[in-house]
Design a protein around this nucleic acid. Structure first.
Lengths: 240, 240
DNA sequence: ACAAAAGTGTTCCTATTACACCCATGG
DNA sequence: CCATGGGTGTAATAGGAACACTTTTGT
């Protein structure tokens, strides 16, 4: 397959017998609870078990594009944030041979999603991060690693707005943080901190429709251009 | 590279045509400057260029063990800390085919090292992190990612003691932090912060031999058992 | 008028910063 | 006795944490 200038005694082709895949931990937020998107597999191995959305990658395909296509396919939206966690490479993680999987985590807005099972799965479902079943392969480990990354990120920074709608209330932001961090926060201190960030701006609109009693809350927005620009300048948006 | 006219859906073996490698960013500390261990390659591709220590991994070998063996082989010591950065997977990163590389960074004590070029390299050398040459493959990217991790870790936590000898002076710790963070720190505030960590203990000994004028500095030690135990309990050793 | 949620300030305390001199040693 | 590096304390400030009531609106 690969013609190289190397000395022939080195059996280079022997190395080219691994496969790799990508595995996605897709986070969604529903009120105060963090959800993870799972699929029920309709093929071996691990047929009929829940698993993370994942897919093999062809030797000449881009990993990032493969991740994008998996997330789009399974969630039905093209609007999401994603980032690599790390490679998961235990020799025994896949029963069919050496398959290294590159884990990604992703944030998206559940309201943008249309879940429709494709040919690789019999079911697509949101499940609560705190009560996941036993998953196929090493997917529980991957979720755990993703959860640590989520925690690390949100413990210090302003982040995760991909989980919310474009316009959001401060309460939604607070609930997002409470879900991510696993503990509750002081309302006044939290609001002060968020509003004092220059990238969070008032829209002037109120949330509507508003069924609850009391007054409708103010809607805010993240100034994405400014946010990206400041991030590019090295600003860390530390809020804790 | 690969014949895409195949109908790969049915041909699972088609996936098993990738290779993977590990690539190590080995950090060492010399006074106030952070060093990286490089090898000069004596084979194609990138013959005679500097590169990070790296190696292909056989399909049935453990990644972690391969990393250990590379670091041991190139540095001559078995005492080091290592951690995965992430997978580097650009389709064009390796001229011989699809080779995903899993990047690791590592800390070790330069004084423990015996650099002796093996059969894969014509030279092994420490170079200053701040003035690295252009490296083979995407190794400059990998160094940059490792550097970000180093910065992120040391910006908040008590860490990096693998870079020092078992007994160290507080000045050495401060210089390590200054090298990692890239700016200088207030001596008194820094010392206070370090000494106030329960895991840092006095040895009662003074540094010797001591050639400089003035009095010889006190030697300290990290209580590794306690450090690991507290880390296992979730303690983060935040010092900034 | 009452129930339910939104929104708003102040005080206290802890943690961080800034800063300069004396001491011990060797030449 | 002087040059060099080690080692130490305090005061001012800023940031984080704790805390309760008033306003609005729909029923």
């Amino acid at each position: 397959m690969h013609n190289s200038a190397l000395s022939p005694k080195e059996d280079l082709n022997y190395y080219f017998r691994s496969a790799f895949s990508v595995t996605c931990v897709i986070f969604g937020l529903e009120g105060k609870s963090m959800k993870v998107l799972l699929v029920k597999r309709n093929r071996e191995p691990y047929k009929d078990q829940y698993a993370l959305p994942a897919g093999m990658v062809y030797p000449n395909d881009s990993i990032e594009k493969r991740v994008d296509s998996i997330i789009e396919q399974v969630s039905g939206t093209e609007k999401f944030y994603k980032k690599q966690i790390r490679a998961f490479a235990d020799t025994s993680r896949h029963p069919l041979g050496r398959v290294i999987s590159i884990g990604y985590y992703s944030f998206l807005n559940m309201l943008d999603c249309t879940l429709k099972a494709g040919e690789d799965e019999s079911e697509i479902i949101w499940m609560d991060l705190k009560s996941l079943p036993s998953l196929a392969f090493d997917h529980n480990d991957i979720v755990q690693a993703a959860n640590r990354r989520l925690l690390a990120k949100m413990s210090s920074q302003l982040a995760g707005f991909e989980l919310l709608s474009e316009k959001f209330t401060l309460k939604q932001v607070q609930e997002m943080y409470e879900a991510a961090l696993g503990h509750s926060l002081d309302k006044r201190n939290f609001r002060r901190k968020i509003v004092s960030q220059t990238v969070i701006e008032e829209t002037g609109e109120l949330l509507s429709p508003w069924d609850e009693s009391g007054k409708a809350p103010m809607l805010y927005r993240l100034n994405k251009q400014l946010y990206e620009a400041m991030k590019a300048e090295g600003h860390k948006f530390e809020i804790f």
